[in-house]
Design a protein around this nucleic acid. Sequence first.
DNA 1: CGCTATTTGTTCAGTGGTTGAATTATTTGA
DNA 2: TCAAATAATTCAACCACTGAACAAATAGCG
Lengths: 402, 402
Amino acid sequence: MRQGSLREWNLAVVLGRIAAADRPPSRAELAAGTGLTRATVSAVVEDLLAGRLVAEAEPTPRTGAGRPSRGLVLATDGPAGLGLEINVDYLAACVVDLAGRVRHHTVHRADLRPVSPTEALARLAELAARARADATREGLTLAGAALAVPGLVDDAGLVRLAPNLGWRDVPVPALLGAGAPLTAHVDGVPPLVVDNEANLAALGELHAGPAGRPSFLHVSGEVGIGAGIVLDGALFRGARGWSGEIGHIPIRPDGPPCRCGGRGCLETYTGQEAILAAAGLAGADLPADTATTRLAELAGAGDPAALRALAEAGTALGVAVAGVVNLLDLDTVVLGGGYAPLAPWLRPPVLAEISRRVLTAAWSPVTVRPAALGAAAAAVGGAGSVVRRILARPAGWLARPA
Amino acid sequence: MRQGSLREWNLAVVLGRIAAADRPPSRAELAAGTGLTRATVSAVVEDLLAGRLVAEAEPTPRTGAGRPSRGLVLATDGPAGLGLEINVDYLAACVVDLAGRVRHHTVHRADLRPVSPTEALARLAELAARARADATREGLTLAGAALAVPGLVDDAGLVRLAPNLGWRDVPVPALLGAGAPLTAHVDGVPPLVVDNEANLAALGELHAGPAGRPSFLHVSGEVGIGAGIVLDGALFRGARGWSGEIGHIPIRPDGPPCRCGGRGCLETYTGQEAILAAAGLAGADLPADTATTRLAELAGAGDPAALRALAEAGTALGVAVAGVVNLLDLDTVVLGGGYAPLAPWLRPPVLAEISRRVLTAAWSPVTVRPAALGAAAAAVGGAGSVVRRILARPAGWLARPA
DNA sequence: CGCTATTTGTTCAGTGGTTGAATTATTTGA
DNA sequence: TCAAATAATTCAACCACTGAACAAATAGCG
């Protein structure tokens, strides 16, 4: 560790406190909270103010005796993150500022399966350009972009396999034109990172949820089933970045064959297609989200086939989730993606399996809840991950060439 | 971060490099490796030498031109860790020095099930006293102790549940007399930490194995089945410290009932008792380790019942492990505890299930290997965790009152 | 044997960043 | 109007790292 690292570290510590506080903290409060002296905090805050990462809040009318403190808030006219998402039946773009507010959000519904990767990415680039224009108009500077894809992605942004999209070895950053205005690498990170949809959705849930360092499993039920694993407040990506393939956890070793080559995988019981088929909606040939909405309506109306399909799917999901909870000792499971609207019916059987199968459930219960973020959660999560990177290491942003 | 933290950090960085190096590094090499100047490294090393954490190695006869370098090694007469273990059929104590060498090791075989916790811990205290005397004779200073228990342990060292030992809510630190000579808290950590046997065994494997930041699953097959999860070179304990309960992952949701209340848990297929019963060794009433040895002999001799039992157990284990590997994207699975001697027969079916069920196995193979540490791996791992704590934060040790 | 090249480790003035106390700024309450 | 109280800044001191110069120790070579 060099000498200058000290200042870098303290920039991150102070900025992190400002971000985590529930009300704008003063310099004095930051000093008390961090253990640094007020002199040091003042110097650090001066750097942050100069770099447009924080701003002084409007003075609050009533405080008490003494010189009034000036609260510090995250800047809403500084850097922002661009979040993009390609999924089977929609494209999305959004912009999130440092404070975590969604400042722009577009969702474009269309079945992407018959479309070539090149064409799909061209359409996405259009959405991105519009988002960028919007951001510039509001005085924001895009600091980077994250693209969510429903598949396995390697470090270079190559989409190795996106089965439900029919993609294989698609070099996304090159095709997306590397997002012309984002060409500068900030702090060694490329301007566009491509990541798995489930990972980014879990990140979104992490930052939308309560503060702290939670551990939870975010299950994303789309055509496939992905999971994002958050451990101690950090996304766990696995040795090669391919963690979370929960869809192929074996439920019955001799169950129906799965396209992965195994038998009785979770996906054959709880994948979107399996649920819809069991509910008698298979032939309808509706777009996936419409079909899910329809299923929720039927279940709400008490349709027996729908209720039975959801109960069975929930039980299979519960078996898999119970194994994960036993293994990782998680206290929360989040139902996201296509499962979020179905949560009222999936939750009871999942909870039942957990309480049957998790050793420690008796002492400390496991929470199962729908995702806090709605549509295109992965896009929002991706945009959030961009600004989080700046919050975690502000020195890199402050030292940028521009 | 205070100003002094800089030095604290650099002490840890330099000490870590010395520990990780495969041959004693010189101050100059450390400077080149860390990016610090030689002046700084010299100052840091002086502190470490004064604190008896490192020592200068014997000068090597041949070097080349220039002033000969003086290699630095971890001290073997400084702090050491005491590792203790209570299991169903043995007690163990060992002492590990900073360099990771086992300087003392005693295993005392006895069936602990009919013995009261108080009596068992009294016997263990005796082993610990002997280990301590040995350590003192060799010039070592015990810096702390870790006790491995086959059960769920909370932060305060209370054993909530050790089913195979028949323990429930046993306040171990109080009963062990808190190990009289270890009463000082070093750096906020109590002198005795109690932890799960599988966790400590995994830690032992982590440090005995190759350097780096590996991610692996260490499966410990004793009477119950526990697993220690190492992610990015760190043990993952879970939200409440109860991770790794792999024994109750569901294999067949409608399989035989398990004492946990669920059905078809892994333990009902691959627990020690289940394997022995399937091999026709159930009635023999041998101590567990003897029975395992006998089973290995039978399998080695080609006994059909033994081979069939092991193949079936390995398949069930493989199903569970495949799910874990899919979920966490691990590249290594270690067979430890009672599984280590059976690894030649368990490995093929486990590998077969992994290659059938793990999506990414085709691109990057998963290694399945027996544990590197032998008997009482958890005791060695626990002792190692004590000295690792010092290596990770040497300033705390250097600043100790004594 | 003496000289040079070479590499290691130490010394020392210089610098960046934190520290602690004193000082200034701004408000409330008597 | 003034004292009390709290917030923020200023400034000399200090700590740890930096860079360059220097001393130490060895190999190679004539």
